[in-house]
Amino acid sequence: MANSRTDKLRRGALEWITASQLYRSIFRHGYDDTVRNRALEVTSNAFLHLHPITIPHHAIKVRFTYCLGGLTFFMFLVETVTGVLLMFYYRPVTEYAYADMKTLQYAVYFGMVLRNLHRWGAHLMVVLVMLHMLRVFLTGSYRPPREFNWVLGVNLLVLTLLLSFTGYLLPWDQLAFWAVTVGTNMAAATPFFGAEGPFHGLLGVDGTNDARFLLLGDVRVGGSALLRFYVLHCVALPLVAGVLMVVHFWRVRKDGGISRPL
């Protein structure tokens, strides 16, 4: 009976591993498929513990959520990892930025693939977050008691768009330059706070102290705009988005769990 002998060997090895101090220091639960272990696998894991231990059966049907929220978060993780890698080669200075894009493309192994992953991942994230909003709307999941989490979600949608828009300037090519010129000129049209908006005279706002200047650090798109967008894109906005995401996920649990029919 070779089968039973290998089986015995496997069980022995498993028991030896799971009984070791190293294993037990990392995983605080057993390996057997028991109710207790299933619960512990969620609660004793920093990454999984945002989940509840149990969940309504209908909620795990793919055709209920289509995993849209989770996939949006997954795309955020993909963007973080690929973005950090791209930062190793990219310098946010007008003299170098465009050249560094070429370096990534032609002189760095997998540089272009990484840039593609980052770019297409961002597009996918925008689509996913919009579809997630549609799903939540169609299932009435914004209704009380989940109002505030919907508000947080709208904020996260806006942050996703801002992250995409600030990243758009960084390649410093014609596409980037003109899209951002047009986009930031809209800020100049803000009533009261934009140099070309209605009522700007009331506050003494001109081209050097208006909303567009705040974004660009200059009266036109140039070096300081590139630096500002870079810092917003790589540090400020991801931090804000990260904090809001934590609250968003936490509130799913606290506002009655994943939405279910009453």
Binding site: A39, E41, L48, H51, T54, I55, I60, V62, C67
Partner: peptide
């Protein structure tokens, strides 16, 4: 209800 681990986690 069903257990999150593994039924949700694997999806």
């Amino acid at each position: 209800d069903v257990a999150v681990f593994p039924y949700l986690v694997y999806i």
